[in-house]
Design a protein around this nucleic acid. Structure first.
Lengths: 112, 112
DNA sequence: CCGAGGCATCGACGGATGTCAATGTCCGGG
DNA sequence: CCCGGACATTGACATCCGTCGATGCCTCGG
């Protein structure tokens, strides 16, 4: 297996508070959090959400003010983390948020 | 001013979904998320929470299996991000979670 | 007063990461 | 059929980040 592109399943169940996180669970959770630990990627998530839940690269390059390869790279990170999906229709690639992903992460972080 | 230790106020209000994040808001939010984007720091948060909400460095070094300077470094990152507090009592430094910090972050990420 | 121990800081080093220009790939229109 | 445009991939580069050993500071006990 390569180290590259494994569409990680979004976070499912890690108490965080309540019981100490195992090293493996911590690594898994950190990979998801890392995907959001960048201002550009946070803006991309926000832009896609505010764009009707779906946007192509060409819709995002100008708002974030970065080159197209860089935007594609960030979107790939988000897809690999299980936070977004990619749907290529014709010439365009449409990116959309995975419905429950952010909510799941939020729930894991703030376990009641 | 140095670039070092400014106890950042925890995230307060950033829609994320709903309206596009400004570059500044993204930067601010990313700084908080970054503080959690590391397996060791996630474990430290978890360990402190499971240790009665408070723990000294000597309680944490052995569970995470890292050197004392490294653990102190990670705890400093969490304090600077506004996620933890440091209370030095006698020889020991007790670290505790900031009550609403994680919940605030979770709410910002998954704006209903 | 002095030594021991808990913790923070410093300096250094290797690996990860964000960015871009250049290039490759695929689809649709003329 | 071929050209243009949208996007992904590659390679290179600078920077950031996690980690450690060494060292300094500060507090308590003797």
């Amino acid at each position: 297996m390569t180290t590259a592109t494994e569409p990680t399943q979004a976070v499912c169940c890690s108490p965080l508070q309540g019981a100490p996180l195992s090293a493996e669970d911590a690594q898994t959770l950190a990979r998801t959090v890392k995907a959001l630990a960048d201002p550009t990627r946070l803006r991309l998530v926000s832009l896609v959400a505010a764009h009707g839940g779906e946007a192509c690269v060409c819709d995002l390059t100008e708002p974030v003010g970065l080159s197209q390869p860089t935007v594609s790279h960030h979107l790939k990170v988000l897809v690999d983390a299980g936070l977004m999906t990619r749907d290529k229709r014709g010439v365009w690639a449409y990116y959309a948020l995975v419905p429950g992903a952010l909510a799941d992460l939020a729930r894991v972080l703030s376990t009641p």
